[in-house]
Design a protein around this nucleic acid. Structure first.
Lengths: 195, 195
DNA sequence: GTCTATAGGAAGATAGAC
DNA sequence: GTCTATCTTCCTATAGAC
């Protein structure tokens, strides 16, 4: 049994992803979730808070999982592969919410915007630190860590724009290929102690 | 002396990039370009045609330049570097219009959408073909050309999301680094005849 | 070409009944 | 919790004067 609140959130994610935040009206969300438009205000302060709530939950989730996955790894190359797999698979499996998080930042204002910005920075720091670590122990050869961070993040985020679930290729397979490409990009060379 | 039509287009690009297509009203564009809102309809059928016009012009431009640049190259690695430079620099220099082209596809409908889709496919084909060529002559080692195409395109397009003009790093320098990373990603190994 | 004025509809949000 | 009804504001687009 799904709660009305969950129905509203799910409907909002679908519609925000398809039409965009601004193009989606409160009435649209109400229709999609089978309620009157006024009923939404029982659960949500306003449309902007609904967007913030969706983005915040998703970002907190990916941060938590990233943290957990990395903590079990010993080498930078393992960590990078974990990050790529997580990011790619989440963007392939939860495409709607990922699309909303990636494209609707500009629809936020003031405090909401700052909060989401902070979470993004926090997540990006994981990637940056892993690359830095790999440069320090010479398993990666990167000219500019910041540029490589952006390049890798954008490459993996982009999955959301072209991947559609199909039987020819699973998102896990895409994750494998992307992890390989990521290691190539940072010029990974295994250390003797890794083998 | 700038024409009213050009003022309208420039204002629309700025506003679409900043607030998004749907969140930008005809009145916003009119204010930004110093005209009454009704004056816009003298030049433009409606808001949707304005978006199509902007996207079409930009895409046709990048296709034409890509075609021209590639035609003077002899090896796949040269071609790939040219494509990366062009894409990165255009996304760094014309950030507003690039952002509109990259994020407002979903605001198009019907024939407009199909037209822009066709142009995107046409442009992506250049990248795909260059990678395929490199695989054939063994200068690139790629597992799946299609995935590598998407990875590279998204990585280069992403520049628009984080680059801001500054004196520490020019967009040309970013282009150089990205070209290096692209060659790493495809496992480029120079052939004897290249040297 | 550009204006003022306005038609006609849809938006976000609230009031108050049940 | 959920509804119907409604307020106010903003939207796209057009009419018609200059």
């Amino acid at each position: 049994m799904e709660s009305s609140e969950q129905k509203i959130i799910d409907a909002a994610i679908r519609l925000f992803a398809k039409k965009g935040f601004t193009a989606t009206s409160i009435r649209d969300i109400a229709n999609e979730s089978g309620l009157a438009s006024s009923a939404l205000y029982y659960y949500v302060n306003n449309k902007n808070k609904l967007l913030r709530m969706i983005m915040e939950k998703y970002l907190q989730q990916i941060i938590d999982v990233a943290n957990e996955r990395i903590s079990t790894c010993t080498t930078p190359s393992q960590k990078l592969q974990e990050l790529v797999h997580l990011h790619v698979e989440l963007h392939g499996k939860e495409r709607f919410v990922a699309l909303v998080v990636d494209t609707e930042y500009r629809s936020l204002e003031g405090e909401d915007r700052e909060r989401i910005r902070a979470l993004r920075k926090e997540y990006e720091a994981y990637w940056h630190n892993v690359l830095q670590e790999g440069v320090k122990d010479s398993s990666f050869q990167i000219q500019e860590v910041k540029l490589a961070t952006y390049a890798l993040l954008e490459m993996c985020t982009g999955v959301v724009h072209w991947f559609t679930p199909n039987k020819e290729q699973s998102i896990e397979q895409v994750g494998n290929r992307f992890a390989e490409m990521a290691l190539n990009l940072v010029r990974y060379t295994p250390k003797k102690t890794d083998m």
